[in-house]
């Protein structure tokens, strides 16, 4: 036997799904209702997540069970952010932002080099060999990387030679975007099919 809660829940879910879908037609009261409901629910969810998975275990439990009072420092900094509401004390929030953003800048700098910049550079450095086809491709890649980089030169005026090269760069960029676009279009269609499947299955009582 299916529990009552699940039956009611599924009907509500189907109703809400249809409300949100009505957005495709045009803005209407059903969508407005769904949108505002979704907004309230999601903010409630977000606040609960922040409390139960961050503040409660990392602050309250740490102090009660492990007697770790170091967490009072970030707690204080968190309260500083709240002081933005009081204009005369809002400068205190700068301490929190400085630690948060300053620390993150230092944290991400070597990671950008390690996992983003160097791999891209390393992949470009390939041997020019393996037959006529691969060599031609390799030269095209070299051309594309160079012309795209030239396009992003901001201190050079895009005239004469630089202008021509950056035009080539924009050609490569557009072909690249076209390929990504076509690729994603096909992937997204399957998502829609999945959602229709849900509605149809629910009506058939499966």
């Amino acid at each position: 036997m299916i529990p009552v809660g699940e039956v009611i829940g599924t009907w509500i879910a189907v109703g809400l799904t249809l409300m949100m879908f009505s957005f495709i037609y045009k803005d209407n009261p059903a969508f407005k209702f769904g949108e505002h409901l979704y907004l309230g629910i999601s903010v409630g969810y977000y606040v609960n997540i922040q409390y139960w998975s961050t503040i409660y275990p990392l602050v309250f439990q740490q102090m009660q069970q492990n007697h770790n009072y170091w967490v009072l420092i970030p707690t204080l900094l968190g309260i500083f952010i709240l002081l933005r509401i009081i204009p005369s004390l809002s400068w205190l929030s700068r301490m929190s932002f400085a630690l948060y953003i300053g620390g993150f800048a230092g944290y991400s700098l070597p990671l950008i080099v390690h996992s983003l910049l160097l791999p891209q550079l390393s992949q470009t450095l390939q041997p020019y060999g393996g037959g006529v086809g691969p060599v031609i491709n390799q030269i095209i890649i070299l051309l594309a990387v160079f012309s795209t980089l030239i396009y992003f030169f901001f201190s050079l005026e895009h005239r004469k030679t630089v202008g021509v090269i950056s035009r080539v760069g924009i050609v490569f960029i557009m072909v690249s975007f076209g390929a990504s676009f076509g690729y994603t279009v096909m992937a997204r269609i399957s998502l829609l099919i999945g959602r229709f499947q849900f509605i149809i299955d629910s009506f058939r009582g499966q």
């Binding site: 957005f23 999601s42 903010v43 977000y46």
Partner: peptide, 15 residues
Amino acid sequence: FLTDDQFSFTAATCG
């Protein structure tokens, strides 16, 4: 502030 959820934010912004 609207919401932290990606699609709720999208729905509300589109609204």
